[in-house]
Amino acid sequence: MTQIPRSALILGLAGVIPFAWGALTLLSDAASQWGMDILGPRFIGPYVQLSYGMVILSFMSGVLWGFATKAKDGQAATGYALSVIPALWAFFMTGGGPVSAGTNLIFGFLGLLVLDFAFWKWGLAPAWWMQLRVLLTGLVVLSLSVGVFL
């Protein structure tokens, strides 16, 4: 495997911050109160995790779409079709309350990892892609699990 570029790793880890912050505010009354006072209720607990999770799944659809542009013929059509799944999943599956939405986001991110693997295996993603995606997906799923299971 190829080493993850430093900028991609740093920016990817920074992208986990809202998920981790949401988990922290669920686990810590002090963090939750500080977040409520300084940031407002939209930016604590499951609210920040769920809204940001929808954004990130949609963003990742765009990333996969970009990978699909490198494919040819039928593989390109398949790549384009697969690339829209995370955004549609986020749109249709994140209602019904925080536990249901959080659970569906977990499944969405795990499904995205399967798509990441397919695009990587087809040679459309960078050599280091799966190292980064496994790390980030693990952190996101762990953070979302706080709201779902605790």
Rank of each mutant, 00 (worst) to 15 (best):
W128P: 09
F59A: 09
D73F: 06
A90R: 04
L139G: 00
A87M: 12
L142S: 08
M93C: 13
M130G: 13
S100T: 15
D116Y: 08
V140L: 08
A101M: 08
L13V: 15
V148D: 08
L50V: 14
G15C: 06
L82W: 02
I10Y: 15
P5T: 03
V63Y: 01
I4Y: 01
G53E: 03
W120T: 12
W65R: 10
G147V: 05
R133S: 08
G74S: 12
Q131W: 13
L113N: 02
P46K: 06
Q33W: 00
V148I: 10
L135D: 05
S83Q: 06
L88D: 04
P18Y: 02
I44K: 03
K121N: 14
L57T: 02
F107C: 11
L82S: 03
F119K: 09
W65Q: 06
T25L: 02
L112E: 05
P98L: 07
L110Y: 06
Q49F: 08
M36Q: 09
P5W: 08
T78V: 09
A14I: 15
G53H: 02
F149Y: 15
P98C: 04
M130K: 12
G53T: 03
L110A: 14
T78N: 00
S145R: 12
S32Q: 06
T103L: 13
A77D: 00
L115A: 06
A14Y: 12
A87R: 02
W120M: 07
Q75Y: 08
V140I: 15
W129C: 11
I4V: 15
Q33Y: 00
L132Q: 14
M60A: 09
G62L: 07
L9W: 04
K70D: 04
F107N: 05
S32T: 00
T25M: 01
Q3R: 15
W21V: 00
W65M: 14
I106P: 05
M93Q: 13
L88K: 02
T94N: 07
Y52Q: 11
G108Y: 02
V63I: 10
G147I: 04
L144D: 10
F59E: 01
L50I: 15
I4M: 03
P18F: 01
F149N: 11
G35W: 01
T103H: 07
G108V: 03
R133E: 07
A68E: 01
G40P: 08
I44P: 04
S83Y: 03
A14W: 13
S28I: 02
I10Q: 14
I106A: 08
T2A: 15
A125Q: 10
F67Y: 09
F91M: 14
W122D: 11
I4A: 04
S145N: 12
L150Y: 15
M36G: 04
V114T: 09
P41T: 12
A81M: 13
G35N: 01
F109T: 05
S145W: 12
W65G: 05
L124C: 14
L27Y: 03
L112W: 07
S58G: 13
P41M: 10
G35K: 00
P86G: 02
F109Y: 14
F92G: 09
I44S: 04
Q33C: 00
S83H: 05
L132P: 11
F107S: 10
Y47R: 15
S51E: 11
F117R: 10
G108R: 03
G62S: 07
P5E: 00
A118G: 08
Q75T: 11
L57G: 02
I17K: 03
P5D: 01
L50G: 12
F67A: 04
G79K: 01
L135A: 09
S58T: 14
T69F: 13
A68C: 05
F119I: 09
A23Y: 02
